[in-house]
Design a protein around this nucleic acid. Sequence first.
DNA 1: GCAACAAAGTAGACGACGACAACAAAGATG
DNA 2: CATCTTTGTTGTCGTCGTCTACTTTGTTGC
Lengths: 198, 198
Amino acid sequence: MNARPYHHGNLRTALIDQAEATVRERGVEQLSLRELARQVGVSHSAPRRHFADRQALLDALAEDGFERLGAQLRRAVDAAGGAFEARLRALAGAYVRFATRDAAMLELMFAGKSREPSGALHEVSERAFSVMLEVIAQGQEQGALEQGDPERVGLVLFATMQGIAALITGGMVDAAGLDGLVADAITNFLRGSRVAVA
Amino acid sequence: MNARPYHHGNLRTALIDQAEATVRERGVEQLSLRELARQVGVSHSAPRRHFADRQALLDALAEDGFERLGAQLRRAVDAAGGAFEARLRALAGAYVRFATRDAAMLELMFAGKSREPSGALHEVSERAFSVMLEVIAQGQEQGALEQGDPERVGLVLFATMQGIAALITGGMVDAAGLDGLVADAITNFLRGSRVAVA
DNA sequence: GCAACAAAGTAGACGACGACAACAAAGATG
DNA sequence: CATCTTTGTTGTCGTCGTCTACTTTGTTGC
């Protein structure tokens, strides 16, 4: 009935949604609380009720991003069947896809991590990466990967994926070559990780 | 004689130097043209004579960064002697060291690349990466790496280095484990890249 | 030498932003 | 239905990037 009731109802989620869209389109730097408020149709300081400052909004976005990333990784791995290598390739593909399609989001997600290791953000990010650890552990059980701390073994793989994504978003390599590059990297990783001799 | 002559003399380099220090200490986001001018002791709009806008200053910083990076890589490789693997490990170590010590710089260097593929910035960045290509080519000649376009072969390696740096600066892995992680990654890369059988 | 000109720095203004404080409206609670 | 809390509004402050107009210094040609 009322075009704009005094209470928005769910301003917080509306702000986050709009912020995600803006970040995707124009980058983190261009995200302005005031413009956000305008787009959502509230006064310039209404967001303050939900986010103490700009960084608080960014943290909330990061949290949201980790949830989405975790869900996408999980879905990709689950859809890849039971074979280790297929699951690994699906995982890597899904990660790099997210990293390139939502580059600004990922940047934001990693930027915040350096300051405060506690809190909900850290928890949800751990949950996202747990999928990786599972797949690594599977590879170790099957002898396709060397033994040892899955986290340590997985770090190199994860680093490579992250780096490939950085090359794409940095414009150093064409996005068209993405799949091939990922496939190469995985192949190389598997060859190098298989403990010498069968 | 005069405490502050009207003409600064080399304002441009003074600004760049101060900007580099600030970026290193407080990050790109906190870099303000006005504060920079204050620190150097000129009026708030003096920097405009040397940098059309904030982005122009950032580009200049990036260019400077690529020069420094290239020099450090070159020095590290040259100091490592003639053996391929030693050179490769020195190269990787030097890169990751730069990437972690000057994380904000590197971020800035990569951020600018996406927009304008031409210009001096692109050129100096190519020169920095030429060291990598040389080392890769040497490895191929000696049969330690698979044949093919050096750029393509090196991309995966470079991506891994970049990713490791991202893990460090993102706080996902302790900086103390850096050297070990790099060594592992190189070992893995070499095992995986050596064309099957001798 | 000096007049004209270019280069380099200054002064002031504008609009936008993040942050803050004081106030108002709408719900929730007793 | 009176009170309290939540949520949104209005107004202000200091800072920032950018722009325009002006001033000072150095250079160049006669």
